[in-house]
């Protein structure tokens, strides 16, 4: 059997793939957090619960309405994003004039309520969600076995991340968003409806979490606590990448997923803590994060 650094290639590339899969979810989730923080200046602690809601929405669509995974990819983010719009209009919009801490406390409280409600109803054992037939099975690449669904998740999340980056950095709409991040009053004085833009941006960030939830459902099962487990790591990713940095969220998300995967191969004891060790080092050397500017 071929080995690299004394590790069989199957094991090495297998862990690398798991790292990329985790990295895909870190990137998608931290991208949503970065978009929301960039414009609203709110640290959205509800993000993990909204990711979980995306997975549950996919589960309900399949089991209650008979709508398959591909429908869920479209409808679940829309539904979860709509709940985000309601939360922003009814609650968050009342807090913008207060200290940012209030937004954090509100979203943290909401996360606990949502997770508690789902846990009360569905327990914490997890509900199965099968891989769509066209993406089941895999390909033997010689040095490793590549499951089709996992390859799809990596490609799809990369496409969504690049698409979001393009919209924000290269389009007129993105220019409005970036300008409103700096000086919302001035953008409004140009005639742009900034309050509506803020609502839709929050809805879009939440929809990204919902999308990640749908893609995660066949891999991790549908579980009320799936978001709570992931979100702590995602916050570390956002801090390392730089709060509000779109490119930082994407690169750091994928990068740290891979580092975590490789740590499982070479020093498994540290695999659960490596991201937090990196966060501590980055905070000491560059508190604004690797790609952050403030």
């Amino acid at each position: 059997m071929t080995e690299i650094f004394g590790v069989p290639t199957q094991a090495l590339f297998g862990q690398l793939l798991i790292g990329l899969i985790n990295g895909s979810f870190y990137a998608l989730l931290s991208l949503g957090l970065a978009v929301i923080f960039g414009l609203l200046n709110i640290i959205n602690f509800t993000h993990g619960a909204q990711y979980m809601m995306g997975a549950f929405a996919a589960y309900f669509l399949l089991n209650k309405l008979g709508l398959n995974y591909w429908w869920a990819l479209v409808l679940a983010p829309l539904a979860v994003g709509a709940t985000g719009v309601i939360v922003e209009r009814l609650m968050l919009s009342r807090l913008y004039k207060l200290d940012h801490l209030y937004g954090l406390l509100l979203t943290f409280g909401l996360a606990l309520i949502i997770q508690g409600a789902f846990r009360h109803e569905y327990g914490s054992a997890g509900l199965p969600y099968s891989i769509p037939e066209i993406l089941s099975g895999g390909t033997n690449l010689g040095f490793m076995f590549l499951p089709k669904y996992r390859a799809w998740v990596i490609v799809a999340s990369l496409a969504v991340c690049v698409g979001t980056w393009f919209v924000i950095e290269r389009t007129k709409l993105g220019a409005y968003l970036r300008a409103a991040t700096e000086n919302p009053a001035m953008v409004q004085a140009f005639g742009v409806n900034v309050p509506r833009m803020i609502t839709l941006t929050y809805g879009f960030g939440v929809a990204l979490a919902g999308l990640a939830g749908v893609m995660a459902a066949p891999i991790y099962q549908v579980n009320p606590l799936m978001g709570a487990d992931t979100i702590i790591v995602v916050f570390a990713v956002v801090v390392i990448g730089g709060m509000g940095s779109i490119m930082g969220a994407v690169i750091t998300g994928f990068g740290l997923g891979v580092i975590e995967g490789l740590t499982k191969v070479f020093y498994p004891e540290a695999s659960n803590t490596v991201i937090f060790v990196i966060m501590a080092i980055v905070l000491m050397i560059r508190p604004q994060g690797l790609f952050g500017s403030r």
Binding site: A175, R178, A179, T181, E182, N183, A185, M186, Q188, A189, F190, G191, V192, N193, V194, P195
Partner: peptide, 28 residues
């Protein structure tokens, strides 16, 4: 009226602090 609606009556506002956006190029 909210600010954005007032602007649509054909008003251009140039503030004292200039409010040039650092995250945008000159052309943007």
């Amino acid at each position: 009226w909210p600010t954005h609606k007032v602007a649509h009556l054909g008003i251009g506002y140039c503030p004292e602090e200039r409010a040039i956006f650092s995250s945008l190029s000159v052309e943007e």
